[in-house]
Simulated scan of single mutants.
Amino acid sequence: MKAVLMTEAGEAEVLQLQEVPDPTIEKDTEILVRLHAAGINPIDTKLRGRGTFYPDKMPAILGCDGAGVVEAVGDAVQRFQVGDEVYFCCGGLGAKLGNYAQKAVVDEHFVAKKPASLNFAEAAAAPLVLITAWEALYERGRLEPREKTLIHAGAGGVGHVAIQLAKLKGADVCTTVSSEEKAEFVRELGADQVIFYKETDFVQATLDWTGGEGVDLAFDTIGGETFYKTFPAVRVYGDVVTILEPDPAYINWKTARSRNLRISFELMLTPMLQGLVEAQQHQAEILEQCATWIDEGSLKIRLSKTFPLVEAAAAHKMLEAGSVTGKIALVID
């Protein structure tokens, strides 16, 4: 099969389309998927630039997100049959082959039926961001109906899904954006309050929106100084969830401590990295519920751009350039 190999850590040019052996089913609960698309995520560009989690297993095939058609099943597979359309987040971290390829082998318990209303590229763009936003808001942040939440970068890959999941929970949403075009986009998703962070102090704007009290939950998808600046925008005894590792250059926990904030970290890759089977099964259940909402029309995935598999390097460059609205994906012939 054809696959994009990461030959070494470095710039986007280290991604090269090559011919590699087809993956084969080795466990009786695995399925072979003929991939039609793969999602592009920031973790892909980070691993390409700095090296994978498993540097002794090079070259690597990146890509955690995939969507395609089941081509073969193991003897014990019960949930899928040949011809089923599926989507999933599995592999691509360096130990297991990723989805920048024509085929992938995945355990059936980590896979969900593809939303019928999405094409393969849209479906492949969805899993990692759906799981991340779900876990951050519902599980780490314990978001409840009628609560107020601040979601940073609401027009981004994780952010645009988080807005919708928060609204599905019955919460009020405030979000930060950089342009009027993105503001229009997040309003269409249901955002109640939009803050242009380049022109406005988002902390003061959030306090004004909440009558000076602060939001119940803040979801940080940016990191760096933004993470620490967010603390005073959260109510006393409120929650802050971040998907980034705090930058020691900005460490100042005084405000968080004085407000008794609960700080949580969200890394949806943990189950894969630590081999937590039940947690991976739970993530597949999240995808199943999200597929229902997508097909009902209450949850949308914005796919801004697609690239053919051979242009994976160009896709990485676009993502690293920043300001992508929604997601981008690779289309696989």
Rank of each mutant, 00 (worst) to 15 (best):
L207H: 03
T210G: 02
D208H: 12
E199K: 13
E188M: 02
F202E: 09
E213K: 10
R187E: 02
Q193N: 05
K182V: 00
F196K: 00
K198Q: 15
F196S: 00
L189I: 10
E199L: 07
Q204P: 14
F185L: 15
K182M: 00
A205K: 15
D192I: 06
F185C: 11
G190K: 15
Y197F: 10
V194C: 09
A191M: 12
F202W: 05
V203E: 07
G190D: 03
G190T: 09
I195K: 01
K198H: 09
T206P: 10
W209E: 06
A205G: 09
D208K: 15
E184H: 12
E199P: 08
E184L: 13
L189K: 13
L207K: 08
I195M: 09
R187A: 01
E188T: 03
F185H: 15
D201V: 07
G212M: 09
D201R: 08
R187C: 00
G211I: 15
V203S: 12
V194K: 01
G212T: 13
W209P: 07
D201H: 06
Q204I: 10
E188G: 10
L189P: 02
I195Y: 05
G212Y: 08
T210I: 04
V186G: 00
G190I: 04
A191Q: 12
F185W: 05
A191Y: 09
A183M: 07
K182E: 01
D192L: 13
E199S: 07
E184R: 14
E188A: 09
D201M: 08
V203P: 11
Y197R: 12
E184V: 14
E188Q: 13
V186D: 01
Y197N: 14
E184A: 14
I195C: 06
Y197W: 14
V186W: 05
V194Q: 03
G212H: 10
F202V: 14
T210L: 10
T206W: 02
A183V: 04
I195G: 13
G190Y: 08
L207G: 06
E213R: 06
A191W: 12
D192T: 14
Y197D: 12
V186T: 03
Y197P: 04
D192M: 03
R187F: 03
K182R: 00
V194S: 10
G212I: 11
T200C: 15
T210M: 01
W209K: 05
A183C: 04
A205Y: 14
V194T: 03
D208F: 15
V194E: 02
E199A: 06
E184I: 11
D201C: 05
T210D: 11
D192N: 04
L207N: 01
E213A: 11
Q193D: 02
T200R: 13
A205L: 12
T206H: 03
W209T: 05
E213Q: 04
L189E: 08
L189F: 05
A183R: 04
K198Y: 08
L189V: 08
D208V: 08
F196V: 00
Y197V: 12
E213P: 00
E213G: 07
W209M: 13
Q204G: 13
